[in-house]
């Protein structure tokens, strides 16, 4: 009888922790594992055998105030089950003239342009175009795992691709 009560207690504790954990990771902060080398050298530079894990804050989703250079996690527009992590390089209303395109594009209202750091090995806005801000799931702020790579992720603005706004 007592073992049954113990089991019931333990399962109830797990249930509570699960509920609160899920809520916190949905609304406030969560942890996201980075796969692949598309954001190297900022993330997954290839020096350690483990994938980087980043802390993702979700407070930015209340206002959708993003700046150029923010590293964001978003749902892939071509497959909603996949999540990607990339850097925002252009915001709505900006004219954008990347060196690999021969034309300038204007990013539509409510969208942003995302790119990986490792341009040779990254699926980003260069293939699927600007993404709606609504797909963004959060902003990566810190690397928290593995221990030797712990640190803040800086906002870095790539130079030379943006035209002055008209």
């Amino acid at each position: 009888m007592s073992s049954r009560k113990f089991l019931w207690d333990v399962s109830r504790k797990f249930f509570t922790v699960g509920l609160i954990g899920l809520t916190v990771s949905d609304r406030y902060v969560s942890i996201f594992p980075v796969r692949g080398a598309s954001m190297s050298p900022t993330l997954n530079p290839g020096t350690s055998s483990h994938d980087d894990h980043v802390l993702v804050e979700k407070f930015c989703l209340q206002k959708y105030n993003f700046k150029r250079g923010d590293v964001v996690v978003f749902c892939s527009p071509t497959n909603h089950k996949e999540k990607h992590i990339k850097r925002i390089t252009g915001l709505a209303g900006e004219w954008f003239a990347p060196t690999y395109l021969y034309d300038a594009v204007r990013i539509p209202e409510g969208h942003c342009w995302v790119e990986g750091e490792n341009l040779a090995n990254s699926t980003d806005s260069r293939s699927f175009g600007p993404i709606p801000l609504g797909l963004i799931q959060g902003r990566a702020t810190h690397v928290i795992w593995p221990p030797q790579r712990v640190g803040k992720i800086n906002r870095r603005v790539p130079e030379g691709s943006r035209l002055p706004s008209f």
Partner: peptide, 8 residues
Amino acid sequence: VRSPLNPN
């Protein structure tokens, strides 16, 4: 649907 033009 979350509006693609205004995420709020």
